[in-house]
Design a protein around this nucleic acid. Structure first.
Length: 218
DNA sequence: ATCCAGGCTGAGG
DNA sequence: CCTCAGCATGGA
């Protein structure tokens, strides 16, 4: 089969032409995005949704850090049980809620800090790794950047590009290949990659997808 | 009954 | 530096 070379910008266009990223990430508030970013670690969204619904039942729909702090770690663990790995995730959420207390639970105050500082502070929290930090950065703190997740590695690999194994290198590699995106653009790019993967099971179904026959050049 | 789903950590080589 | 077991659920 003839392969057509496309750039990352063109890939973004093609994804956007076929898939609508509107309304993604699915969350009613920034706090819900943040807890969801932890809960989604190595699970599916269905289980996260159950956990978030249960959490709202227990502490209210605002899901503010101060509401989270009303629960003990053990209570929180039981509430988010459906997301799996609930003991660790509960601890991580407790740590995060304590972190935000330092800023008076004011996300806008956090946004004023240099991006690098925020990311470092998030990474210093036990249970928050690079992908979770970047997810919070992109969708809640609203700072541009690429999220390296299993889905992006899989999609890129199907397009002939193997990302560097180290997270930081993969992130830089992608970000240097596409510099003209707005914040919304970066949010959409990640959303499109996730949605594409959920639509097509990779690598098996790649040849059935609208990206079949394309090769990514970066 | 497996296997999978949008990771992270700590211990050991 | 790197690998990898362990962490747990709900649905296909």
């Amino acid at each position: 089969m003839q392969e057509t070379k496309i750039t990352l910008e063109e890939l973004y266009e093609k994804l956007g032409a076929q898939i609508s990223p509107a309304g993604w990430w699915p969350a009613a508030s920034d706090w819900e995005i943040i807890w969801g970013a932890v809960l989604i670690q190595n699970t599916n969204w269905r289980n996260v949704d159950l956990a978030l619904a249960e959490l709202k039942q227990n502490i209210g729909f605002g899901l503010k850090p101060s509401d989270v702090r009303q629960l003990s770690g053990d209570e929180l663990a039981q509430v988010i049980r459906s997301a799996g790995f609930y003991t660790r995730k509960a601890q991580t959420i407790v740590h995060l809620s304590n972190y935000f207390a330092q800023y008076n639970d004011d996300l806008e105050a956090v946004r004023q800090l240099p991006r690098k500082v925020i990311r470092q502070e998030l990474l210093a929290i036990n249970g928050v790794g690079e992908e979770t930090a970047d997810t919070i950065m992109l969708y809640a703190v609203q700072k541009s950047g690429f999220i390296v997740d299993k889905y992006s590695r899989r999609l890129f690999q199907s397009l002939g590009v193997v990302l560097p194994p180290k997270y930081g290198q993969a992130k830089i590699y992608v970000e240097q290949s596409i510099k003209s995106l707005t914040l919304r653009g970066w949010q959409n790019l990640h959303a499109l990659i996730v949605l594409f993967n959920q639509q097509y099971k990779l690598p098996q179904d790649f040849n059935d997808s609208f990206l079949a026959g394309y090769q990514l050049v970066m």
